[in-house]
Design a binder for these strands. Structure first.
Lengths: 199, 199
DNA sequence: TAGCTTTGCCTAACAGTGTTAGATTATTTA
DNA sequence: TAAATAATCTAACACTGTTAGGCAAAGCTA
């Protein structure tokens, strides 16, 4: 009856192989070009056997986001444990979050629905820069002449953009942020940023 | 020779029809289920005709992002023009950006590569909440007991998350943010937020 | 108006996708 | 060894983006 265990182990193994193969392909060629047949090739099976382990391609991605969240949680936990003061811990946890996003880029993408936009890419023609330059100009106006450097404008612009775009995309991918919280976060961020710019 | 003009006008018209149809389908069924044949159906042609107007499906999306940027720029311009003080203008412009994102959700998605993540969706099982709860707990620790309300924790958490996730996804979709700016924005945001939490 | 050329549009096809049904082979059980 | 079960494959369906080739209508020229 130990053969049952062996078989069970083997099945578990190919299950993991499927997940590994999927992630490998995504890392090598990006998520859009991931296909069931490519996964099958990599694990040296034909495509239909994958469906004995996962109900759909979507299910594979779902499982990968699950492991992604576990990995992220662990790295944040470990980072926090290096410190004792809560503020240092919180800082370390966010930095761990940041580092995870780039160390495990593909996992982060599937976890949070960030697609490497092929559309805009290499050709940042002037119209795409319209909103950007408008905002930068206004930030420049507000900055005291003394610190009106390119680096400063960059920094303010990206801080602004990050918080607004971040909040928007959180709202679009998940839908659990209350209207009131949105209003407050946005108001705080914009108000705080404008205050900070004026010094 | 006026017929040349008429024909030119007609061609321009179906070009616009293609773009409109694509956006309509995306609004109705989401970007993933947009297909050339569906566009063709909507404009009452067959699929290959579209290739006389656009080189590829990608080109259609590219054109739509272009119009999206124009629309966004106009709305920001108009919003800014309602005020005279630069700080009010900047605030209004960011609010216009925010409003555009939800009023023209599909355009924003294609412009900035935000995909409505089907993966996570309805089943927020406990593991997905791991990182979230860890961060919330730490924020709770840092908040003075007096303002340790759920609303406050929510607000701080989402502000934090927005700026970090926003910066990450900006980096992933575009790649034009310098390492130095990233470091500064991240440091400023995290430092500032922690300071704000402690009051 | 006749013929020729160009244009507009379509059908058919290719290679690829996710997914399912049915047949076939291998393995385990009796 | 024979029957039953499990593992795996082939073939197919309906779909995707995209291209090649043909047909018919429109325009131009004589």
């Amino acid at each position: 009856m130990a053969s049952k265990d062996r078989i069970q182990r083997l099945k578990e193994e190919t299950r993991i192989n499927i997940l590994d193969a999927a992630l490998d392909i995504a890392k090598a060629e990006g998520w859009p070009s991931l296909s069931m047949r490519k996964i099958a090739d990599k694990i040296e099976y034909t495509a239909p056997v994958i469906y004995e382990y996962f109900n759909s391609k979507e299910a594979i991605l779902q499982e990968l986001t699950r492991t992604g969240y576990l990995k992220l949680a662990k790295q944040m936990q470990d980072a926090g444990n290096l410190f004792t003061e809560p503020e240092r811990q919180l800082e370390a946890m966010w930095l761990a979050y940041w580092n995870f996003a780039f160390a495990e880029k593909e996992l982060y993408q599937v976890m949070y629905g960030v697609q490497t936009n092929c559309c805009v890419s290499e050709n940042p023609c002037v119209v795409l820069k319209g909103p950007e330059t408008m905002l930068r100009n206004k930030i420049e106006d507000l900055l005291p002449a003394a610190n009106r450097t390119k680096e400063n404008i960059d920094r303010r612009y990206y801080t602004f953009w990050s918080v607004v775009h971040g909040l928007i995309s959180i709202n679009m991918t998940r839908q659990l942020v209350s209207e009131e919280i949105n209003r407050q976060v946005l108001k705080d961020a914009i108000g705080g940023m404008i205050h900070a710019i004026k010094n």
